[in-house]
């Protein structure tokens, strides 16, 4: 399938790392982007020819149905790649989030991914495709946003189990980006201060993620080590 035109679904593709990935992949592949932005707002940032479905993952059950319908409507009978990248988080003092923050974080980052993986499996299996879960280096624990760290650890465990279960049909991987310069920290209510200066830009992180997707390895950490080693320059293309 190398070099061929792929059918790719990306969630959270209208900002941050997701949008950077969309911009890289759109010229060579068929893309369906799912996001929480209204369709007009999404159209303003997405490249020409990219399909968009408005499916906020804060209501996972409904969103998964909407995404599945959009895949059908696109006429796709197979999915080469599903890149589950959407994520939210909330920075809180003392490690104490509200019930609403915990639920939104788990719904978007973890439960929606579990349900999408379950629902998209037939499409992925038909293509011998790849399911990519975008985690975070925070998955080892982070007192500033506990539910976010927890949700990303959940994705790690999901990938670990599913990669084994599906080894003959679908490649499953989890990729953990390090701190990246996106709008996420501001949305989370967190100012990284001077530390923000060393965050990696979204473009090179997306390049390294694309390389990891092409290699189908798991788990992969995409952070400063790989960047300094030239990972963004030499990474494979999908």
């Amino acid at each position: 399938m190398a070099g061929g035109r792929r059918a790719i679904l990306i969630t959270g593709g209208t900002s941050g790392i997701g949008l950077a990935l969309v911009r890289r992949l759109a010229p060579r592949h068929d893309l369906l982007v799912a996001g929480r932005r209204a369709p007009d707002d999404a159209a303003a940032v997405l490249p020409q020819g990219v399909r968009y479905v408005h499916a906020p993952l804060t209501t996972p059950e409904e969103a998964v149905r909407t995404v599945a319908e959009a895949v059908l409507k696109a006429g796709w009978v197979r999915l080469d790649n599903a890149i589950l990248n959407a994520g939210v988080g909330f920075a809180v003092p003392g490690g104490i989030e509200t019930a609403g923050q915990i639920r939104a974080t788990l719904d978007v980052n973890l439960t929606a991914s579990v349900m999408l993986a379950r629902t998209l499996h037939p499409w992925l299996a038909r293509a011998g495709g790849t399911l990519t879960l975008v985690g975070s280096v925070a998955r080892r624990g982070q007192g500033l946003f506990p539910a976010y760290a927890a949700s990303k650890a959940g994705l790690h465990g999901l990938a670990r189990a599913l990669r084994s279960e599906w080894r003959d049909t679908v490649a499953v991987q989890v990729i953990h980006p390090g701190p990246t310069r996106t709008g996420m920290h501001a949305k989370a209510g967190h100012d990284p201060g001077r530390l923000g200066a060393v965050f990696l830009p979204a473009g090179p992180v997306a390049a390294m993620i694309e390389g990891a997707i092409a290699a189908r390895r798991s788990p992969v950490t995409v952070s400063h080590g790989r960047f300094v080693a030239g990972g963004a320059l030499w990474s494979r293309r999908l």
Binding site: V114, R140, A147, A149, G157
Partner: peptide, 21 residues
């Protein structure tokens, strides 16, 4: 890891890291 109980494993990993956090 727990092939055969992937969502259970995911949830228990989340809980473990919540506790650590």
């Amino acid at each position: 890891g727990y092939p055969g109980a992937a969502s259970y494993a995911a949830a228990k990993d989340a809980l473990a890291v919540y506790a650590r956090s």
